[in-house]
């Protein structure tokens, strides 16, 4: 019973990180039609920037503000310089370009911070453990699990109540329509890429105290994020939320109940969903 609870909490915590990353991925896909292979690398960059900032500013919360912003700025720059010439071309070229960005970022991180693993501590206010129904659990993990729904609500407000949010949703549904009604599409695309990579960077900062910071962390998470957005439905915001929770729980409960095939479960989930519901759980046909 105790392990079950812990595993569910672990699953939710991981799921919420996945949600924040996948949200960025799915916005970028929905609006721009680009599946961003470098998204995991932007996530990794967020973690490394947090690592880099920590000794200077001694404040996790400030890092949580600054690092994602820097990541988003880099994302916006690469969109303007590299992706922009490729719109209208075959989708595989955009995929490959972002793969090129992934290669560059992954190695750049190794050059700057070395190939080894690093870790940073959770902020003081959230260090230590709590008792939940007789089990001890790290406060920081609980914080992430609870932060997810908060961010989800904030994003929901942004997309449904603000002008920019509505515009992005409109463009995600119909790109041609967006340009027809006078939305500045290049600016919108850059803004979306900025925002999407910012979310990746934010997830990276939040993950930094939880997981080992290393050059491979992006490559591992990007596949998981792909699975989330495909299972949830590419471009669907609700889908990213539900998909992330499902994947988080599947991974965590898999460890407990079917450890032999736990690693294969996410891929099994992906294949099953794609074969039964080709456009994902919440995707539009």
């Amino acid at each position: 019973m105790d392990t079950l609870l812990i595993n569910i909490l672990n699953g939710l915590c991981y799921g919420m990180l996945l949600f924040i990353i996948s949200m960025g991925l799915t916005i970028i896909f929905g609006v721009m039609g680009v599946l961003n292979f470098a998204h995991g690398s932007f996530y990794m960059l967020g973690a490394y920037l947090c690592l880099w900032l920590a000794p200077h500013i001694h404040n996790f919360w400030l890092a949580l503000l600054i690092a994602p912003f820097l990541v988003g700025a880099l994302g916006a720059l690469s969109e303007m310089a590299l992706l922009r010439p490729l719109y209208g071309r075959d989708i595989s070229f955009q995929l490959l370009l972002t793969f090129g960005i992934l290669l560059i970022l992954d190695d750049a991180v190794k050059l700057i911070w070395g190939p080894g693993y690093h870790s940073i501590e959770a902020p003081k206010a959230l260090s230590g453990t709590v008792q939940i129904l007789g089990s001890t659990y790290p406060v920081y993990s609980l914080f992430i699990a609870l932060l997810g729904p908060v961010i989800a609500t904030a994003l929901w407000f942004f997309f449904h109540k603000t002008a920019w949010g509505k515009m992005i949703r409109a463009a995600a549904m119909d790109r041609e329509m967006a340009s027809a009604i006078g939305i500045n599409v290049p600016l919108l695309f850059t803004a979306v890429f900025f925002f999407g990579t910012l979310l990746a960077g934010m997830a990276g900062v939040l993950a930094a105290p939880l997981r080992a910071i290393g050059p491979a962390m992006g490559d591992n998470i990007i596949i998981a994020a792909f699975i989330v957005v495909v299972v949830g439905g590419l471009g669907s915001f609700l889908g990213a939320f539900i998909g992330a929770i499902i994947l988080g729980l599947v991974e965590a409960l898999g460890i407990q109940f079917v450890p032999q095939i736990q690693m294969a479960l996410p891929y099994l989930l992906l294949a099953l969903i794609l074969l039964v519901r080709p456009r994902g759980l919440f995707g539009s046909e």
């Binding site: 490729l86 070229f93 370009l97 090129g100 960005i101 290669l103 560059i104 992954d106 190695d107 750049a108």
Partner: peptide
């Protein structure tokens, strides 16, 4: 870090 170079070659080729 040869991946950096691979990426730096791949990007202009794609574009």
């Amino acid at each position: 870090s040869w991946m950096i170079f691979l990426g730096a070659i791949l990007v202009p080729i794609v574009i």
